[in-house]
Design a protein around this nucleic acid. Structure first.
Lengths: 208, 208
DNA sequence: CCCAACCTAGACCGATCGGTCTAGAGGAAA
DNA sequence: TTTCCTCTAGACCGATCGGTCTAGGTTGGG
């Protein structure tokens, strides 16, 4: 059985992905979790904010875990990435283009005074980037470059999710996805062009 | 000087860029615009929503106008893009990482029932992409490809803005920007490998 | 001049916001 | 059994939400 606490966090997590922190009402979350108000303020002294932070952590845990699992079960790390992106796109589609990134909406609403919430979000995005970077590295790309690419990767996909959401159309997002994976493959080829060949000049697509 | 209506739209536009639709209160906007409530509901029968739509349109008009102007005054279209991105980054920095994309926050909060608001957002993003595509095309890339690249471009920058905002750090965003411009330059080189050749095929402006 | 039309001004409204508080159910330890 | 503590339950709170409505300028056309 799921505890009331778990149900609350779960409900908040989906609500955050759908409308962000400012957009959700506490009563709404309570209703979805089938829980009276007392439970919330018993488990989370910080109320709505505390619950949101827990929800953000849960979402990130799940999403990074999902990528890690796919990476473990796939021969090719880049294919794992592809499957992972596809999974998120399908969730968006299955929810009639309501369920986007669990963090993004909140990230754009939060203001300077909400330090804890903001910290949880930063931490979340860092964890996300780190997991993607790990995957890219597993594809044979040096760590430093993998981090750069991961940052770019996450940004582009976040933007794509957002635009697909408003437009209620994900063909767009598929394009983004394909472009990103293409970039990674190209980078991969640069890194291990032909193992027998020495003295490869490395040309980077990107320029810092 | 500025009419009350203009002040209202202005105030709403900045508020949307800072906290999104759900995050702003009407009274807050009224105060910032130094305007009593009656004015809002006189000019906008749809109230908050109507004002937000007007604000979205204004923001998009400004932002696309800014790019168009830079394109007109710059020799190199890609340099125009660079200046444009820089401008947005600077605005984010100057506002202590509060002022992000004027549409993004709202785009992630809006739900299916808010059809008009959603339509304004979609229209806005389309206009934005179109203006970027026009610039990329001016850099010598065929229209169809320019549109693809523009979509990618906008997505990546939106995502970058968001992450820079939460992290209160824009070094990250500079990286995204550099990568994007690098990609464009690479694409440009592919398109016109030897510029001194005579009888350059003029690329058609439009493509079904 | 008068009088609409337009705009300003803010009191006021019910609904909902996030949060507090008290009462008690349930179970484990004594 | 009694006691204590965790968790459930929801009535209740002031503040704020978005929105309505009436009254009072202000202005330009007749």
């Amino acid at each position: 059985m799921s505890s009331t606490r778990e149900r609350l966090v779960e409900a908040m997590a989906t609500s955050l992905a759908r409308k962000g922190f400012a957009g959700v009402g506490v009563s709404e979350v309570l209703e979805q979790a089938q829980t009276p108000k007392g439970v919330l303020y018993h488990h989370f002294t910080d109320g709505k904010t505390g619950l949101a932070i827990a929800a953000i952590r849960l979402s990130i845990e799940r999403i990074t875990g999902s990528l890690a699992r796919k990476r473990a079960s796939c021969e090719d790390p880049i294919e794992a990435l592809e499957l992972w992106l596809e999974g998120m796109r399908q969730r968006l589609e299955a929810s009639s283009f309501e369920y986007g990134c669990p963090l993004a909406a909140t990230a754009l609403e939060v203001h300077a005074e909400q330090t804890e919430l903001r910290a949880a979000l930063t931490e979340g995005f860092n964890a996300l980037q780190a997991e993607v970077a790990r995957t890219i590295e597993a594809a044979g790309i040096p760590a430093a470059r993998a981090r750069e690419l991961a940052a770019f990767f996450v940004s582009a996909y976040e933007g794509g999710l957002m635009q697909a959401r408003v437009a209620s159309d994900s063909t767009f997002l598929r394009g983004i996805c394909a472009t990103l994976l293409g970039l990674l493959r190209a980078e991969q080829r640069l890194q291990k062009p032909l193992p027998q060949r020495k003295n490869q000049t490395k040309r980077s697509v990107h320029n810092a």
